[in-house]
């Protein structure tokens, strides 16, 4: 017991000293709420992504579901996205047993269910940014990883954050990356951006909800970034076969 007390004191003392030194440091030089270096890294990654006219990326998402306030269930979602900013999108999504395909060819937007060979289609002309807004407003549908791909929302994380910290460098999947932490009143994020000045890609995003019991998280992993993909002719056009079942797509009432 005496040994345990000694060990506990040995643990508590350095922790106390470190907190004390941290508080002392806060009193002496107050760091800025948003680290300029972290902002610069985020801006570089956003601008780099915005300047890519064509891109393709694979992504994997895991997110938590808290059951009965204590049991944390993890769900996964994965897919691939091919985007041509001039007016073309193809995205494939797997969510549990559910599979979806999204086609946007600049004139129409289609949601296809390959398993049931059923699709819903609306006419829409515009760019990807307008498509994101309309689909969300009228049909309450979020396109996969839209917040990363949309140029209008390039500052989605940096602008929403109240504090941004640069946590240093680390390795993610064998790749050197900057580790950033962002927070505001509602949510916390962490970003890992490749430490590559020519190609600062987003490697991973982790979001935390601090107000739900169990602190559920979502984790997004990006792999196989390709900013010069080979896009086949008609890759963004959905062509139903004879047995395809067309579904009506009613507009839902916005919240």
């Amino acid at each position: 017991m005496k040994t345990f007390r000694t060990a506990l004191f040995g643990l508590a003392l350095p922790i106390t000293l470190s907190f004390g030194s941290a508080l002392l440091a806060d009193d002496t030089d107050d760091p800025p709420a948003k680290d300029p270096r972290a902002i610069e890294i985020i801006e570089n990654a956003s601008v780099h992504l915005k300047n890519q006219q064509n891109l393709s990326v694979n992504w994997f998402i895991s997110y938590d579901d808290i059951v009965d306030g204590r049991e944390k269930i993890a769900h996964t979602r994965s897919g691939t996205t091919v985007l041509a900013r001039e007016g073309g999108l193809y995205s494939y999504l797997e969510d549990g047993l559910k599979t979806r395909e999204f086609f946007f060819d600049g004139a129409s937007f289609t949601v296809n269910d390959p398993d049931q060979n059923a699709y819903a289609q609306i006419l829409f002309s515009g760019d990807f940014e307008n498509l994101v807004d309309r689909i969300k407003a009228e049909y309450d549908l979020d396109l996969p990883i839209w917040s990363i791909l949309s140029t209008r929302h390039k500052g989605h994380y940096a602008d929403a954050a109240e504090q941004i910290a640069y946590l240093g460098q680390t390795r993610v999947g064998g790749e050197l990356a900057h580790h950033l932490a962002l927070t505001n009143h509602d949510e916390d994020w962490q970003l890992w951006i490749a430490d590559d000045e020519e190609n600062p890609r987003i490697i991973m995003i982790v979001g935390t909800d601090p107000y739900v019991q169990g602190w559920p998280q979502f984790r997004v992993y990006f792999t196989d970034w390709d900013f010069a993909p080979e896009i086949a002719e008609g890759a963004f056009v959905f062509t139903p076969d004879d047995d395809s079942e067309r579904m009506t797509w009613p507009k839902v009432r916005s919240e």
Binding site: K98, R100, V111, D113, Q116, A118, A120, D140, L141, E245, R246, M247, T248, W249, P250, V252
Partner: peptide, 22 residues
């Protein structure tokens, strides 16, 4: 009219995409 409907014992059902499900 390009839509798919089902007639089941006198009741007509229309295939609809709602909340990401058929």
């Amino acid at each position: 009219d390009g839509e798919t409907l089902y007639l089941c014992d006198g009741v007509l059902y229309r295939s609809t995409y709602y909340e990401d499900d058929k």
